Simulated assay, not measured.
Amino acid sequence: MTRRRPRAAALVVALVAAVAGTASPAEGAPPAAAPAQPVTSPVTVCSGVRDAPVLVAGDLLVDGQCVLGYTAVLGEIRTTPGSRLFLNGAGRTDGDVHLAPGAIAALTGVHVGGGIHLDDVDRLYLTTGSVARSIRGRAARVEIERTRVGGALNVAVPEATTLTGVRLVGAEVGGWVNLYGGTQDVAVSTLRRGLTMSWARRAAVCGTSVLADVTVRRARGPVHVSGAPWLPPCSPGTPPVRNAFGANLLLHENGPDVRVDGTDVAGDLDCRGATTPVVGDVTVGGARLGRCA
């Protein structure tokens, strides 16, 4: 690579500024974290605050805390371990977003041209934006609100995480949604393929359209397929929205608190294991099998 003159190098890292403060479907197999990939050149480093619009000609490397308004990144976005990235005011990145262990990222109104890779991430928040490809890996907390994901959503929550997990509200996902561990809440969303929820501390699906199978298996806490009071869009007092599943609803080997109502199932309702679910207002196009017979 051509050696840059000191003055040119200073322009490459013009985003750096001093800133203080912190922000605070295989059976039984959890999703794997995406492998690390080499950083490409040129690289712009951000570890500060920038209010003016920013254009990054290559990749953006977040080191520390980086707060940006409208930003266009023509390459990829990467973080160092424990870094914090806040992109506000829309913008885009043409490549992937790679989040390192312990990282926190909040993207509002941002279009990601590639996918998002989670490597034992602390938190990821996506609001009113889009991701062209898939979101995959491990994270303690993922919240996706009013955002379209073109590919799959494949997230594992660490075993030690009990109070947080994955939450979808008003989201649209083009590929399969496969969630493993932690709390798992899916509200008023549209899933263009299927949904698999495994080993959840709590699992809830309300007001959601799923075109393929919905599977909830081996949950270690309550399972509610309809409405749930901890999901604001589906709380009592709001207009009810029924679940609509285009194939089967499979409830396998879950704990004692399993409830199903306000749901239309085009295929079979299949309940297996020691628990007999409480089934209320449910229409079934196929057969009622197992403990739901």
Rank of each mutant, 00 (worst) to 15 (best):
M1Q: 10
R3S: 11
P6K: 13
A8V: 10
L15P: 01
A18W: 08
G21A: 08
T22C: 13
A23G: 14
P25M: 03
A26N: 12
G28P: 07
A29W: 06
P30L: 01
P30Q: 08
P30T: 01
A33T: 07
A34L: 08
P35E: 10
S41W: 04
V45P: 05
V49K: 13
A52I: 11
L55P: 11
A57C: 08
A57Q: 15
G58D: 03
L60C: 01
C66A: 07
Y70M: 06
A72Y: 06
A72M: 10
L74Y: 02
G75M: 01
T80L: 14
S83E: 03
S83V: 01
F86V: 10
F86M: 13
N88F: 08
G89M: 06
A90F: 09
G95D: 06
I104F: 13
V110K: 04
V112H: 03
I116R: 05
H117P: 00
V121C: 15
D122G: 11
L124T: 00
T127E: 14
T127H: 14
S130R: 13
R133F: 04
R136Q: 15
G137Q: 04
R138V: 03
A140S: 13
E145G: 13
R146W: 11
N154R: 15
A156E: 10
E159M: 05
T162P: 01
V166P: 02
R167Y: 03
L168E: 04
V169D: 15
A171L: 02
E172F: 03
E172D: 14
G174I: 00
G175N: 04
W176L: 09
V177L: 09
L195S: 00
M197F: 02
W199T: 04
R201K: 13
R201F: 04
A203R: 01
A204S: 15
G207R: 01
T215N: 06
V216Q: 07
R220E: 11
V223G: 04
V223D: 06
H224I: 03
P233S: 08
P236G: 12
R242E: 14
A244M: 13
A247T: 07
L249A: 08
L249V: 06
H252W: 05
H252S: 05
R259Y: 07
G262P: 02
T263V: 02
T263K: 09
T263E: 11
A266Q: 13
L269Y: 01
T275S: 11
V279F: 14
V282D: 10
V284W: 07
V284K: 09
G286R: 00
A287R: 14
L289N: 12
R291K: 14
C292H: 05
